[in-house]
Simulated scan of single mutants.
Amino acid sequence: MTAPSDAPGTAGDASEVEPAQGSGDTASRSLRQIAWQRFRRDKVAMVGGVVVLLLIAVAIFAPLLVKLFGYPPNEFNQAPIDPLTGGVLKDPDDPMSGIDPWGGMSWNHLLGLEPVNGRDLFSRVVYGAQISLLVAFGATVLCVAIGTVLGILAGYFGGWVDTVISRAMDIFLAFPLLLFAIALAGVIPDGAFGLTGNGLRIALLIFIIGFFNWPYIGRIVRGQTLTFKEREFVEAARSLGASNRHILFREILPNLITPILVYSTLLIPTNILFEAALSFLGVGINPPTPTWGGMISNSLQYYTTSPHFVIIPGMAIFITVLAFNLLGDGLRDAFDPRSSD
Rank of each mutant, 00 (worst) to 15 (best):
G49C: 10
G87T: 01
M96F: 15
L64S: 11
Q78I: 11
P73K: 04
P83E: 06
D91P: 10
P72E: 09
A62C: 00
A59N: 07
P92Q: 15
M46H: 09
D91K: 12
A62F: 02
T85C: 08
S97H: 11
V52T: 02
K67S: 15
L65N: 03
V44F: 09
V58H: 03
I60T: 12
D93K: 15
G49N: 05
M46R: 07
Y71W: 15
V88F: 04
L54C: 07
G48E: 05
V47Q: 02
P83Y: 06
P80V: 01
G86R: 03
V58G: 00
M46W: 07
F69V: 01
V66N: 03
N74T: 12
F61I: 05
I99N: 04
P80M: 03
F76Q: 14
P95Q: 15
G70M: 02
L84Y: 12
T85R: 04
P83T: 07
F76K: 15
P72M: 05
L65F: 05
P73T: 04
D94M: 13
P72S: 05
I81F: 04
I99S: 02
V88D: 03
G70F: 00
I99G: 00
V44D: 05
L55A: 03
V47C: 07
P73L: 06
V50E: 11
I99V: 08
P72W: 10
G70P: 00
E75S: 14
D100C: 09
Y71N: 11
D93C: 15
G49Q: 05
G87D: 01
N74M: 13
A62R: 04
A57S: 09
L53E: 07
P92D: 15
G86A: 00
V66L: 07
P92V: 14
D82P: 04
W102L: 14
P72G: 08
L68F: 11
L84K: 11
N77E: 06
P101H: 06
I56H: 09
M46I: 13
V52S: 00
N74A: 10
E75F: 14
K67F: 12
P80L: 01
P101K: 05
L65V: 06
L53T: 02
V44L: 11
I99W: 00
Q78H: 10
P73E: 06
P63G: 01
Q78K: 11
F76M: 14
P83V: 08
V88H: 02
L68Y: 11
P92R: 12
L84D: 13
P95K: 12
K90M: 15
F61E: 06
G49T: 09
P92I: 12
F76W: 14
P80R: 04
I81R: 00
G70D: 01
P83I: 08
P80I: 01
S97I: 14
T85S: 11
L53G: 10
P80E: 04
A79V: 13
A62N: 02
A79E: 14
G98E: 12
N74I: 06
P83L: 08
V88A: 01
L55K: 00
T85P: 00
L54H: 02
K90Y: 14
V47N: 01
L64T: 10
L68T: 13
V52G: 00
V50L: 13
V44N: 08
I56W: 09
